[in-house]
Amino acid sequence: MTKILLACSAGMSTSLLVTNMQEEAKARGLDAEIWAVAQDKAESDMEKADVLLIGPQMRFMKRKYEKVAKDVGIPLDVIDAQAYGRVDGKAVIDHALNLIESK
């Protein structure tokens, strides 16, 4: 199972993106768990994830998360602002899978 964690400011603004990503994963036959949390919960949830994607409005948190991500052995990146704005589940899931594969 592929586990994709999204971090956003309050944990709610990415809910539609998560839904679109889940639908894309289902369409591909990909066994995936995709969830979003608020920034204060991201560090603890990284231990359960294969990748962390950060909402573009939180790009300033990337450095803070990098140490924890390195310690738990997962890649992380900021979600492309256009894909985020379009709520493009396909583009974001592609980015997550590419990060996992290149790990």
Rank of each mutant, 00 (worst) to 15 (best):
K3F: 00
K3A: 08
I4A: 13
I4Y: 05
L5Y: 06
L5H: 13
L6E: 13
L6T: 05
S9N: 11
S9R: 06
G11L: 12
G11V: 02
T14A: 14
S15E: 02
L16C: 00
L17W: 09
V18N: 12
V18R: 07
V18P: 12
T19V: 07
E23T: 15
E23S: 11
E23Y: 03
A25E: 01
A27I: 03
R28E: 15
G29Y: 01
G29P: 10
L30F: 00
D31M: 08
A32M: 04
A32H: 07
I34S: 04
W35K: 06
A36Q: 04
A36H: 03
V37G: 09
V37P: 08
A38N: 12
A38V: 01
A38H: 00
D40Y: 15
E43I: 15
S44D: 11
D45V: 07
M46S: 06
E47A: 14
D50H: 09
L52W: 01
I54W: 00
P56V: 12
Q57A: 02
K62L: 15
K62D: 04
R63M: 10
K64A: 09
K70M: 08
V72Y: 05
V72A: 10
V72S: 12
G73N: 04
G73Q: 10
I74P: 01
P75D: 00
L76A: 02
D77Q: 12
D77L: 00
V78F: 02
I79N: 08
Q82W: 00
A83P: 06
Y84R: 10
Y84K: 13
G85P: 05
G85S: 13
G85F: 02
V87W: 03
D88G: 10
D88T: 08
G89Q: 10
V92H: 14
I93W: 05
D94A: 09
D94S: 08
L97R: 03
S102G: 12
